Amino acid sequence: MTGDVDSPFWWSDSTGDVHVAFTSAEAGNVATHIGDSQAALTNRADLAQHLGAAPRFLDQVHSAEVCDADTAGEAAPTADAWVGTASAPLAVLVADCLPVLFAGIDRDHRPITAAAHAGRQGLLAGVLERTAAAMRARGAQSVTAWIGPGACGGCYEVPADMLEAVAVNRPSIASRTSWGTPALNLRAEARTVLESAGADVVDVPGCTIEDPQLFSHRRSQRTGDPQGRFAGIVWF
């Protein structure tokens, strides 16, 4: 977790020229479709000022669609992941789903970045496999993936029939809540998928339902906490 009190980040890290970060609830909601859209735009502007460049956002629909960030126009493309070679920060919005950030280098040492929104629907539909494949298609010789904070396997309660149906072909996703009911472990499944795709995985621990420094859709429905979305961002 970042120790800079003036930072908008809940967690950030740098490896060489690669920077990855996840914003905090204290930095405000950055999703324009939730709550006060003008406040969200102001929070995005503050984030851009901190980064020194405006992060780019997707129109997310819980799909497995991966788009090309280099050819996307100014308007947010409808997809749940994107891959690019430009230097602009790529972002995804989450509040229980997993934000997964990617970085790689091609054989000519050019950077390739990607960001994916991996909730239950997108994860099961293959959004992470498709993102890793898109990076390889761009020439990435190696891929590192950071799995950010999301609803943990001890909190993400689901109906028993859903768990049974999903876990048949994905045993690593099966979990139980801390109170003993059926649950899904999206993080464990994401790691399994990414490692199978040949990615080096970095786990960024954190449960959105348990940590009030992060937005959580499920927690807000239960407690009345402010709704919002935080961002996962990757840039060179």
Rank of each mutant, 00 (worst) to 15 (best):
G3F: 00
D4G: 04
V5F: 01
D6P: 03
P8C: 03
G16C: 13
H19M: 12
V20R: 00
A21G: 13
T23Q: 01
T23G: 02
S24N: 04
A27E: 06
S37D: 12
S37P: 13
R44W: 09
R44H: 10
L51M: 12
G52I: 06
A54M: 14
F57D: 06
V61S: 10
A64S: 15
V66P: 03
D68R: 01
A69E: 00
A69T: 11
D70H: 05
D70R: 06
D70Y: 06
T71H: 09
A72I: 07
P77C: 11
A86V: 12
V92C: 05
C97M: 09
P99C: 08
G104I: 09
D106S: 08
A118E: 05
R120L: 14
G122S: 07
L124Q: 12
G126C: 02
A133C: 03
M135G: 03
R138S: 11
Q141Y: 12
S142R: 15
W146M: 06
G150C: 03
Y156A: 09
A160M: 10
M162A: 13
S175V: 08
T177D: 07
A183L: 09
A188W: 00
G198K: 08
A199S: 14
V201P: 02
D203H: 10
V204G: 01
P205Y: 11
Q221D: 14
D225W: 14
D225L: 13
P226Y: 06
I233Q: 04
I233C: 00
W235D: 01
